[in-house]
């Protein structure tokens, strides 16, 4: 196994997630794309942890932190989307233009 093969998959995840964040309109699917980006970062972290044979396992610990923070982020994100839906009856981010001009 080489380092590059895992890191390339992680970067492909990140790029696909970036594409999703930019091109999706539905707020729930934007959050799902953010999850893809974070999964790509996790792959990078764990790959370099194994490659460097880190005695502190900083990469794995950091990916655990990222997982915890991503879970918190999704919880808050879904709560905000519910609030928006309750007020505007839509989860489409294009309709959130109250602060535009």
């Amino acid at each position: 196994m080489t380092v590059v093969q895992f890191v390339l998959v992680g970067m492909a995840f990140f790029s696909i997630g970036l594409y999703g964040v930019l091109s999706r309109k539905n707020a729930v699917l934007i959050l799902a794309s953010v999850e893809l980006m974070l999964a790509g970062v996790n792959i990078n972290m764990v790959t370099f942890d194994t490659y460097l044979q880190d005695q502190l396992h900083a990469g794995q610990i950091f990916s655990l932190f990222i997982i915890a923070l991503a879970a918190a982020e999704v919880g808050i994100g879904i709560a905000i989307i519910l609030l928006i839906f309750r007020n505007l009856q839509t989860a489409d981010v294009d309709s959130l233009d109250l602060m535009k001009d």
Binding site: V4, S15, I16, Y19, T47, Y51
Partner: peptide, 27 residues
Amino acid sequence: PAALLSIVLFAVTAWAVWDAFGMIMIQ
């Protein structure tokens, strides 16, 4: 534009990683 941006991002980072590590194995 979104697809273009993500493809460019992937190409640049992939080139950088390939340049740095090549076919170095994980021990």
